[in-house]
Design a protein around this nucleic acid. Structure first.
Lengths: 199, 199, 199, 199
DNA sequence: CATGAATGAGTCTTCATTCAT
DNA sequence: AATGAATGAAGACTCATTCAT
């Protein structure tokens, strides 16, 4: 009788809810996406929802952390590579690929609606730190290899790479850009940004 | 006889409310900023609010339109100038100056929370069209003057300038960038983006 | 300078407001008719409204009292007549004629929405008393003349005449009846109600 | 597995709310009866209210439809009877019995306050059609049996029966009539209305 | 007198969250 | 574990009424 807690089943369902939430948040915004709508999308009852997440906000945070974790893992997987400039370029490509999910820009906007919440601010900060730190290391290495301009410190350069990446995501949301057509251009823009002074 | 209608007083008060709303929206987001809080900030009663704006959403739209109008006027004022590349640079500077208002990034995020609303989407689209159209003309002129790369059409280039501007605003909000320190860098980044191929 | 209070002008304007209110109340109900709408209909400012009536409710009461007064006057004008049964019939006709104003049924319903208000209840009671009392006297006289049934006291008979009159008004409102076509039938119905037992 | 859905419990509670609303509407009118007051009367939380009815207006409509349904059922149950005139009389009695609920007249007035609402108008129209149609059939039959006057078509006669019924309800509300004492008189009045010409 | 801008108390309604089953 | 009925705090908005001009 005693249903042993099945961690796999639990995790699978958790992911279903996260995916449903991503869809609803992206389409309707954080406040526009009611827990009821998320439950409907996930095919669960409202009571079940709160078995998995104590709060609607916790669900948002879970999605955020999932993303941060993936970035962390990605950088961890690059450890030891010698072609620093290539790593930076591949990170940009990776981000562009992520942005291919049509829900991404909407989700980013949804998160923006709740940054006043300290826990969201913290999660966002951590995400940015992970990205900035990851980028910074490789940009520094590329700089030493003479593949990147030296008039600015690596920290600021990685911030500016993130400026372009964030802007790219924002313009996708605004329908100003076509994700498929502009992925290449994104790489070129970052290249121009990082190019040594007299290239 | 006593015509109490004082259009100036009316307009002044309207601006007070708009300013208060800008503050609250930026700090708490669209949904986080209650009409009560906006009224408190503006020093008016809740009834007065709805004397000036039929809806909280209409207030947001009024702010948006105010911004669009200023951009329109700015471009109208440049009409006839011959130094196209300089105009583009000045537009970027102008945007950076606007971004100096610490409420700007927060407000942009607040707007993002309501894009699902058709009227907001329309207002946003109009704003982007005005910016894109204004930029596009001058970039085209600068291109003909050989001051801008020719491998991409002016339309796409203006989109990419907006990528950088949007990203700049977003990173300011994320505290990744320091508005005062990076304004110059912004100009340089756009310059690199637009520079002719073999510069 | 000293504008002497012009009682005629004042009374005229008062009637304009009353007329406008009758229109709005009839069309939108008591709560549906906002003071703003009544002012618009009357062509006055909202401030002026409260110069003439301390309260929206007082306006309703004024209309009610106007009606009661007219009934009172009508009965006073019949004083001394000898054809009692004819007077009763003429009162019914008079009521049917009043009901010709397309706003009447709507207004009656509007009043119904506020009977919980003691002052309205009192005004209504007074109106009914005036009608019942007026009718009762003539029915009594007609009864003595053998023109009206004697199995019921005059008080109850006048109540039943009012049942038919009230029902007539209600059905007009419900579009069940056509005012023009059924006025004659109304007289016949009351006649049947009052006819001596073996007629 | 635990299907919590208990349709009986749901329906029971729905009826509790309807009953509470009938009480409040009757006492305070449609606008005077706040949802809060209805909830208090029903012993439920404000949130529960909207679990059962999407809108205060929908609650009113539900009551209306309940009444219409009962009339429909009543007429359906008479199907096949041969004593047409008796059926008409019994319908009048039935209506008088309904009017015994002291909340009835007040509720009717409450409905009157919202007839401007199209949905209410439609529900009311349907109710009247059901009553008129039901009555009309039996009056026609009675007419053919020589038990009812033939100088007016059955349609108009049923309208006039409704005039008396509506008026009866209205006078009860006005305290002009005593429900217990006058029920018999109601039957007599309708009988006089329908009696063949030379009775 | 006439005006209409300003007011705030009061309403309906939404929605995240709890809990008995 | 899963469910969904129940909850009530919170928020946008309406409108009769006041008052300075």
């Amino acid at each position: 009788m005693a249903r042993t807690v099945d961690p796999e089943r639990h995790e699978a369902r958790r992911l279903v809810i996260i995916d449903a939430a991503l869809t609803r948040f992206a389409a309707d915004g954080y406040h526009g996406a009611t827990t009821a709508a998320i439950c409907r999308e996930a095919g669960i009852g409202s009571g079940t929802f709160f078995h998995y997440f104590p709060t609607k906000l916790d669900l948002l945070l879970a999605i955020l952390e999932l993303g941060t974790g993936e970035v962390e893992e990605w950088f961890a997987a690059q450890e030891g590579r010698a072609d620093a400039a290539r790593v930076v370029a591949e990170f940009v490509e990776r981000t562009a690929r992520e942005a291919t999910d049509p829900r991404m820009p909407g989700f980013v906007r949804a998160v923006g609606a709740v940054v006043a919440e300290p826990r969201v601010a913290a999660a966002l900060e951590r995400d940015e730190r992970v990205q900035a730190h990851g980028l910074c290391g490789w940009i520094e290495a590329a700089r030493r290899a003479g593949e990147v301009r030296t008039d600015l410190p690596a920290e600021r350069l990685s911030q500016w790479v993130m400026v372009v990446l964030d802007g790219y995501l924002a313009r996708l949301a605004a329908d100003g850009l076509d994700a498929a057509a502009e992925r290449e251009q994104l790489g070129d823009t970052v290249a121009r940004l990082l190019a040594p002074a007299g290239a």
